[in-house]
Amino acid sequence: MACGLSLVKYILFLFNLLCAICGILLIIFGALLFSNIHSLDDFKDALETQQIPIALIVLGSVVLLISFFGCCGAIRESYCMSMTYSIFLFILMIAQLTLVVYMFIAKEDYLKHMEHVVDRAWDRRTQKADYMDGLQIGFKCCGNRDYRDYTYQGFVPATCCEDASRCSVETAYKNGCKQTFVRFWDKNSDIIKYAGLIIAAIEFVGFIFSCCLANNIRNYRRRSAY
């Protein structure tokens, strides 16, 4: 029994080490997403565009914390800590699967909302805070649909070019901001969904092992008492 207990204990420890790495990757990915849209901080809908990156950072932090807790429970061979870790891991797995299912169901609506974000920025481009400039600099795009949206002005803004000092129709970014912005979220939402499924599967394996460890600890201590 002691040999089996040690085997499960070290497998669970290695599993939590893997989960900790996944948590760190989630934090890094969320931070990268957040930095890419940071230029929209003053935009009215910026909070909505930042919800996914913030959720990833929070989720990664929770995974990292729970993994640390699981490592301690495994090494100390504590039944209470192992069961508490199992419950937290199960709750986290359910919450994560709920988020993934939501992203599968609501993806089209979310992408349409991102289109409206760009439309509003375009409509308000003449206000004091030029939100289109933030989009064009951050996503290397020009205009709402494409650079030809500016042709009625006879010029394109400096934020539409890599070299702001020599910006013209010929050197402007050809892709429109609406298409670029929506493609950005479309691509990253797919990454988030499938990565979430993989991590949830890993968490389920960890849940099984943690339950086995807790059961082995309880049985081993009962038999040792006699």
Rank of each mutant, 00 (worst) to 15 (best):
C3V: 04
C3E: 03
L7W: 07
V8Q: 04
Y10W: 11
Y10F: 10
F13D: 14
L17M: 15
L17A: 15
A20E: 11
G23A: 08
I24W: 02
I24H: 01
L25R: 05
L25Y: 04
L26Q: 08
L26V: 05
I27D: 11
I28G: 14
G30W: 02
A31M: 13
F34H: 13
S35L: 14
S39M: 04
D41P: 00
D42A: 07
F43I: 08
F43S: 08
A46K: 09
Q50R: 13
Q51I: 09
P53H: 02
P53R: 04
P53M: 06
A55H: 03
L56F: 13
I57Q: 03
L59G: 07
V63K: 08
V63A: 13
L64T: 15
L64H: 09
L65S: 08
I66T: 12
I66D: 10
C72W: 07
G73E: 00
G73L: 02
G73D: 01
C80D: 00
C80I: 10
M83W: 05
Y85F: 15
A95R: 12
L97G: 09
V101G: 09
Y102S: 13
Y102W: 14
A106F: 07
A106M: 04
E108T: 12
D109W: 00
D109M: 00
L111K: 13
K112Y: 10
E115L: 10
D119C: 03
R120V: 10
W122H: 13
D123M: 09
R124H: 06
R125E: 02
T126R: 03
T126V: 02
Q127P: 01
K128R: 11
M132C: 05
G134T: 03
L135R: 04
G138I: 10
F139D: 04
K140F: 14
G143L: 05
D146F: 00
Y150V: 08
Y150E: 02
T151K: 14
Y152K: 09
F155I: 08
F155T: 11
A158T: 11
C160Q: 01
C160P: 06
C161L: 07
E162T: 13
R166W: 00
R166T: 05
S168W: 01
V169L: 11
A172C: 08
Y173C: 11
K174D: 03
C177H: 07
V182Y: 09
K187R: 10
N188T: 10
N188H: 14
D190L: 15
Y194D: 07
A195F: 11
I198H: 02
I198R: 05
I199Y: 04
A200R: 02
E203R: 01
F207D: 01
F209T: 07
F209V: 12
A214N: 00
I217W: 02
R218N: 05
N219Q: 06
R223A: 05
S224N: 04
A225R: 08
